[in-house]
């Protein structure tokens, strides 16, 4: 038996390997990118979900922005929250910016029983498309369409369309307030609001900017822009614009006077102890019994 075929094969492959090794070495030297190792360290700390909530293309880009700037002014990772902010601050050697934790809030209360369907939608299951087509099943051109564009946009599985109400609902434990749903909603129904102490929040669950009489036709809990809440509020946190009340979450002290005053039950107070909560979730019932 001859050994030459084995020898030739070994030689050919060996030499090829050696040549490629040399080429690879020089190429690697030539195209070497010198990068601050801090970027890697910060990227390691960031959640890595690439949700885009910070406004950057992804976590890596955010880490680069941190390092480039050298401090955390104006940059914050909503998904990571204060814990991540602390770690990043430690790595950068600066003070962590204490941002009020936020949560996505769906400002629509037009569930199937309150904003009854006046037609049935049979097209592409996408809010942006349906919005470009017409006003929606309830006839309200401002409320939640319930087709789930926000659900698709959420990286954290924190928003779902409740099949019973037909409205998107946020899971406040999972929500990191990255704002992806806010961008995805073609009607601007979703807003990032302060999470509040013990997750307690008071907000106007309506986005309808039509005149009260018209808004009422499509939804029984539509804000009619009557301004009673504005007059009631002792802190001046509420203003009415375009027939729609808005509660400034930075000013609101959560006294809930407006909730009781609202004739259409469009102001929701969530996560408060029982009696009030019950009234809020069933606004059709008279509030001051």
């Amino acid at each position: 038996m001859s050994f030459s075929p084995i020898l030739i094969a070994v030689l050919v492959l060996g030499v090829t390997g050696a040549v490629f090794a040399v080429v690879l070495y020089f190429v690697a030297q030539k195209f070497k990118v010198i990068e601050d190792p801090l970027i890697d360290e910060i990227a390691e700390v960031l959640p890595g979900a690439n949700c885009g909530g910070c406004g950057k293309a992804g976590c890596r880009a955010m880490a680069e922005a941190f390092v480039k700037q050298g401090n955390m002014d104006g940059l914050s990772c909503p998904a990571g929250g204060p814990a991540v902010a602390q770690k990043v601050a430690a790595l950068l050697g600066c003070a962590a910016e204490a941002a009020e934790p936020k949560v996505a809030v769906v400002r629509c209360g037009g569930s199937c029983d309150k904003a009854t369907s006046k037609n049935s939608y049979d097209g592409l299951q996408d809010c942006a498309f349906a919005n470009s087509l017409y006003a929606g099943e309830s006839g309200c051109a401002f409320g939640c369409l319930g087709l789930g564009s926000c659900v698709k946009a959420c990286q954290f599985d924190a928003i779902k369309v409740n099949p019973e109400t037909g409205i998107a609902e946020v899971d406040e434990d999972k929500c990191v307030a990255c704002g992806a749903c806010v961008k995805a909603c073609p009607r601007g129904v979703i807003e990032l609001r302060n999470k509040g102490k013990q997750n307690r929040r008071v907000y106007v669950a309506c986005n309808n900017k039509e005149k009260g009489s018209i808004a009422k036709k499509s939804c029984s809990v539509a804000c009619i822009g009557c301004g009673k809440c504005m007059k009631t509020c002792p802190f001046g946190a509420i203003k009415v614009e375009n027939n729609l009340a808005y509660i400034d979450y930075n000013v609101c002290k959560m006294c809930r006077k407006c909730v009781a005053e609202c004739p259409s039950g469009s102001i929701h107070a969530v996560n408060f102890p029982q009696p009030v909560k019950k009234e809020a979730s069933e606004p059709a019932a008279p509030v001051n019994q």
Partner: peptide, 8 residues
């Protein structure tokens, strides 16, 4: 009367 359907 049934609801009218809407689609593109």
């Amino acid at each position: 009367m049934k609801l009218l359907k809407v689609s593109g």
